[in-house]
Design a protein around this nucleic acid. Structure first.
Length: 265
DNA sequence: CTAAAATCCTGGTGGC
DNA sequence: TGCCACCAGGATTTTA
């Protein structure tokens, strides 16, 4: 379940092997992965060179020659491998993008939720997204303004990518705990002081995640270490690292939500 | 407007 | 050991 820090780490690791490469061939084994019409995708991708790779929210964004953009969203279980064509292909590889150097990009995705988009208009994919929480120009005032006349509960708001981009279940729970705010609070009850704490906590937990190269989960994304630093996520019944009270779990908008009833108010 | 539920998927788990 | 019901979980879509 890659969230912002995992996707950021993956993007950084893809740059060295992929920037400058040109796609030569597309093999699609599970067509639902491709969100743009498959025939267009297969026709338009070969011949395009990767000029740069960035991240927007949880999307991996390949800037291609000719003004094209390839977006890949890993969703729950997606994983990108860059391997020589001769390497035996693992199970659950649904799309293969051949390169001009004898290697290929393999989109492996056990649960088949991952999606790829090829477009000349990036806005069609990312246009609905809220602000990047780690952007230099994303200020406390901007964050507070997001809450203007918002009435829903805090956790679902933080998970809403149109509200703020990049948080998922793990980092939303961790940010609420760091800020000392209960995730089921109604958004319009948060004080100015609480909003300020939350703003800094969101950026803090995301930066910590990136620093530890993300969190490794279900062995989908190897290499991350942040799972060792979770304060509440997945720790139901275990003692809070701050106060020793057992971490509690509730369900909010059908998502597991973990919090410390003592540290969070 | 908010919000809850259904949808898409498969591997892992727990009950019997 | 086998069978099966059930669950997680991001984002979108549907329904209330």
């Amino acid at each position: 379940m890659p969230e912002l820090p995992e996707v950021e780490t993956i993007v950084r690791e893809l740059r060295q092997p992929l920037v400058g490469r040109t796609f030569t061939q597309v093999i699609v084994r599970w067509e639902k992965t491709i969100q743009t019409p498959v025939a267009e995708f297969k026709h338009n991708l070969p011949g395009k060179q990767i000029e740069s790779i960035r991240r927007r929210a949880k999307y991996i964004w390949f800037h291609l020659s000719g003004g094209w953009s390839l977006f890949i969203h890993l969703k729950m279980s997606g994983n990108l491998q860059v391997l020589p064509v001769s390497t035996p292909c693992e199970k659950h590889v649904h799309t293969i993008l051949r390169l001009d150097n004898g290697h290929e990009v393999r989109f492996k995705d056990t649960r088949k939720f991952g999606r790829a988009y090829l477009t000349r208009d990036p806005e069609t994919v990312t246009g609905h997204l809220g602000p990047e929480p780690l952007a230099d120009n994303f200020t406390l005032a901007d964050f507070k303004a997001l809450f203007h006349r918002k009435k829903g509960r805090l956790k679902p708001l933080l998970l809403n990518q149109a509200f703020i981009a990049g948080l998922g279940n793990i980092y939303a729970d961790e940010a609420c705990h760091d800020a000392g705010i209960l995730p089921n609070r109604t958004a319009d009850t948060l004080s100015a002081v609480e909003l300020e704490r939350l703003y800094h906590s969101i950026r803090k937990v995301l930066n910590h995640g990136i620093m530890h190269r993300g969190a490794t989960f279900d062995e989908v994304y190897p290499g991350g270490k942040f799972q060792n630093f979770f304060q509440v996520y997945g720790r139901t019944g275990e003692p809070c690292r701050t106060c020793d009270q057992p971490v509690e779990r509730i369900v909010l908008s059908s998502r597991s939500t973990h919090f410390c009833p003592n540290c969070q108010r």
